[in-house]
């Protein structure tokens, strides 16, 4: 497989808290290839969500982009006008959030919320858009979609709401879906269904996915490539299989070791879990750790020294 041109290319992205405040992202560089699922994993405060929001152009004050570039199809998103950016958002680049209840408008029926996407981005009339909305609900496997289209968000379960969010996000067949902890608020059996749905729909449409998650299990099941973030830096990037079998950065090794694995317990007593700071000495996680991300070709591993 030769290297295709990346769909989205982030270079040295820096985000600050306030104009003169601390850096939240210390120069992130990553590529997302067309149709691939790229996982961004890290703990709270690592900056993985901020990365997703920056690409989406949805950073809230006092967070602001302080440098770098985000290239999508030869245009630097950071240089676009607000209007151009808005047209792109929801149409070519869409996003789903962790909490579908707050991401949906509580006083508009879900059918109309999906239909709105067609009206805004495709210039359809409402009648046609509503029909398309029912189709969209059907495609995310919401049972009896024509009736459910008239329902309001609070009448649906968490899993159903997240399916509606996916329907809205994928309504305009975007090139890139940013999924920020899409299943963290859901029960594990519901999560399995929602992840499967995202995987199937995006594979079928060739939509690339940036999956932001703290859950290594979710990442392992969903992604072709994984970037590991720690406190505003991308510290390792590898193919998923390689990352889980041969993690290079001590922090990644620590994360993998800290989590008990289902089916790993053996008879006779309980084992102590390996704690992160037993693998990563405090100094190695210091704030001035150099961000030496070496891009020696896309399919290779990149590790922060």
């Amino acid at each position: 497989m030769s290297n295709p041109d990346p769909l989205l290319s982030v270079r040295d992205l820096r985000v600050k808290l306030g104009r003169h405040g601390a850096h939240i992202l210390h120069g992130i560089s990553l590529d997302i290839l067309p149709g691939e699922t790229y996982g961004l994993v890290g703990e709270s405060g690592s900056g993985k969500s901020v990365t997703g929001l920056s690409i989406m152009g949805l950073l809230k004050r006092p967070l602001n982009v302080a440098g770098g570039s985000i290239h999508y199809q030869d245009q630097n998103l950071l240089k676009l006008s607000r209007r151009a950016r808005r047209d792109l958002r929801g149409d070519r680049i869409a996003m789903i959030f962790q909490e579908p209840m707050t991401a949906l408008n509580p006083v508009v029926s879900i059918g109309n919320q999906i239909a709105e996407m067609f009206v805004i981005h495709r210039g359809m009339g409402w009648t046609e858009a509503r029909l398309r909305a029912v189709e969209a609900l059907d495609s995310v496997q919401v049972p009896s979609p024509a009736e459910r289209a008239r329902a309001y968000p609070h009448q649906l379960s968490g899993g159903m709401r997240q399916r509606v969010m996916i329907a809205i996000a994928l309504a305009c067949r975007p090139d890139l879906l940013i999924a920020d902890e899409p299943t963290t608020a859901l029960d594990v059996t519901v999560q399995a269904g929602v992840l499967k749905l995202i995987h199937e729909l995006c594979t079928a449409e060739g939509t690339a996915v940036l999956l932001v998650s703290h859950d290594l299990g979710v990442i392992a099941n969903m992604c072709q490539r994984v970037g590991v973030m720690d406190r505003g830096r991308l510290i390792e990037e590898q193919d998923t299989a390689a990352l889980f079998s041969n993690p290079l950065h001590p922090y990644t090794r620590g994360l993998l070791a800290a989590r008990p694995r289902l089916g790993s317990r053996v008879e006779g007593g309980r084992k102590r879990l390996t704690e992160l700071d037993e693998i990563v000495p405090d100094g190695a996680r210091g704030h001035d750790a150099p961000t030496l991300v070496t891009p020696r070709g896309r399919r290779e591993a990149r590790v922060a020294a």
């Binding site: 594990v188 392992a220 889980f244």
Partner: peptide, 18 residues
């Protein structure tokens, strides 16, 4: 069984499906 089967597993990527 469904509960256990639904757990997204880190090893899944290595040995396909648990």
């Amino acid at each position: 069984r469904r509960l256990i089967d639904s757990v997204p597993d880190m090893d899944a990527v290595l040995s396909d499906r648990r």
